[in-house]
Design a protein around this nucleic acid. Structure first.
Lengths: 353, 353
DNA sequence: TTGTACGCGTTATCAC
DNA sequence: GTGATAACGCGTACAA
């Protein structure tokens, strides 16, 4: 079933059918209707490969999420939310989404070959690509436009990316704890091969320094962005008697909370706790988490739009998009909420009410 | 950069280069090496569209996850785990993965057009397609092989699917509660447009009936597979004084647990609680959840393999694959664990130890 | 407004 | 073992 056979049935030429399909104005309403009817009747669909071959466009966007299963598919729903944003926007932009998920080890060469094939996708989106990832060094050789979600660790200037100001956000979170009178503030960092984690660590240090507080390296521990490593990190921290913890995300904070409870300590009485992201889990802990909200879905949507603009030549690279964050004060930090009702966009749905 | 130019540089014909690329045996080692060198040097990649056009294969598998954001991207990591399984297997099978995620409403026609285009993907995988979904009725007109993860609600015999025996699993869960002496056992069902939820409800009823217990319809409430609806469902149940709850999944159980605690009741003393899935959250509640473990990643992997076999004509449809489940006894049901150490595959990692 | 003819980059079928 | 050559199905000048 091809253009030709539709054309025969409609008594027109192949090109006319093609024009109808591509909404060309140069076709009489009469023939258009006749052709359309036959297309419908025969349930005809143009061959995507043939079309891509001649148009040099696949209308497919590639999305690469190259992290380990522990980080992606455990209890941390940051990545699923990124995916939701990407998926929505990509569909709305009339593209299809090709996905590469999970670790790149055994199938390395296969994946590399596919990814660097400039004919499979019109553009690529990389999500949280760690600097020690095999793909990272190949970015420069890419023949198609690409956008990164979360800032790359190096070569920042030449790269298109969408992120938030992690340094500033971490400063705000840490300052908040300082203002509450906390002095031994610990930080459970994320994976430090990801720039966001580094930035948050920098912001944490900045805030302590600005407040004239000492930086105790024993109060800084790395995690993998998930519950279990948050739990373990907190166990490491407890002997050093922190009075507050700034966690790299909400899931890590939830894990830390369990360790704190098991040690017989109370939040926020004995320790203040602040998370990052403001995902569902932040409302499900007891007490609910004070956290930095970042627009996760919007990150995905923005990246998709940016990429399509790049593909269409509407923008000249490199573009850096920084989305806003917001401190959400709940009970885990020990502050009285400055806006007890209505200030928190989620308060109406807050389960603890 | 095409075959032709590589051929020129290597001093051979286009056909020879094609043979090298496709590992044809009919090419001398000498020319093979020469051609390979040039391909490497020029960083040449064959055009996927041209290849697909002539081979009538795209080497792309389509994955459709058509549920609402509430169900997919909230705190329920069933779907991310399915995705992990699919992604792993698809990559291993040397295919690429095209994804359609999220609700199908505004972009309905666009998506439908793409999906029913038999030239874009070699086969399709549908995950938990609800029977009231617009796509559901179009399945029969599909021109390409497809596999469903989780059994369809109708036309079961003619459909390829991968699932678990939800009826039996629910019977086992409910029986377990009965054996513990519980008499007013409630069920928080899942979305009943999905066959799995219906099956679990059937299993629940079966077990009660087999034990000669009355079925109180007030003890059956529907949920959306997420924390919040679990919480709300439990609030509805509490006035009817259940002494046990079988939840449609672990996340729903976690939500129910919060409602129970807020009502001043204790688990398992006042109520027994059993979940479903055995995902991370089952170990993070207090007490940890007794639950039915199902092989979520394996569902995805199995579906991908099945689809590829179908594509290659190695199997004749329809295939029904049922994967095993297992009752995992922890503290939320009030039973003493029959195998306190080692019986639970996760016990080494159990955070509560 | 419609039709003709060519090219997109590859694989497959022949000859040689 | 290698090289022409004809498809594959579509878009698009260009001609009519």
């Amino acid at each position: 079933m091809d253009l030709e056979s539709i054309a025969r049935k409609a008594g027109v030429s192949r090109s006319t059918v093609s024009r109808v399909i591509n909404d060309s104005p140069n076709v009489s309403e009469q023939t258009r209707q006749r052709v359309l009817a036959i297309i419908e009747e025969e349930d005809f669909h143009p061959n995507a490969a043939a079309r891509a071959l001649v148009k040099r466009r696949t209308d497919i966007l590639g999305v690469v999420m190259p992290t380990s299963a522990n980080v992606f598919f455990s209890d941390n729903n940051y990545y699923p939310l990124i995916l939701a944003g990407l998926s929505d926007a990509i569909r709305q932009l009339d593209y299809a989404m090709l996905m590469w998920l999970g670790e790149v080890t055994h199938s390395d060469q296969h994946l590399m070959r596919r990814l660097s094939n400039p004919h499979l996708t019109d553009g690529l989106i990389f999500v949280s690509l760690p600097s020690d990832h095999p793909l990272y060094e190949k970015l420069s050789r890419l023949r198609q436009p690409f956008v990164m979600i979360d800032r790359p660790l190096t070569n920042v200037e030449n790269t298109n990316y969408v992120s938030v100001d992690n340094v500033r956000a971490a400063e705000i979170a840490t300052q908040h704890l300082i203002q509450l009178g906390r002095r031994r503030i610990a930080h459970i960092a994320g994976i430090l091969a990801i720039a966001d984690s580094c930035d948050r660590l920098v912001g944490y240090r900045n805030a302590l320094r600005a407040a004239g507080l000492p930086i105790d390296e024993r109060l800084i521990v790395e995690s993998d962005f998930n519950y279990q490593t948050g739990y373990r990190a907190m166990q490491q921290l407890l002997p050093h008697k922190p009075d507050a913890v700034f966690a790299s995300n909400d899931t890590v904070a939830a894990g830390a909370l369990q360790a704190i409870h098991e040690a017989g300590l109370r939040v926020p009485d004995d320790l203040s706790l602040v998370g990052f992201d403001d995902v569902d889990v932040a409302l499900q802990t007891d007490p609910p988490l004070t956290t930095i909200r970042q627009p996760i879905r919007a990150k995905g949507e923005t990246a998709a739009r940016l990429l399509v603009d790049l593909i269409n030549g509407k923008l000249s690279a490199p573009q850096h998009v920084i989305l806003p964050t917001e401190l959400i004060v709940r009970q885990s930090c020990g502050a009285h909420s400055p806006t007890p009702k209505g200030g928190d966009a989620r308060s109406a749905d807050d389960l603890s009410e």
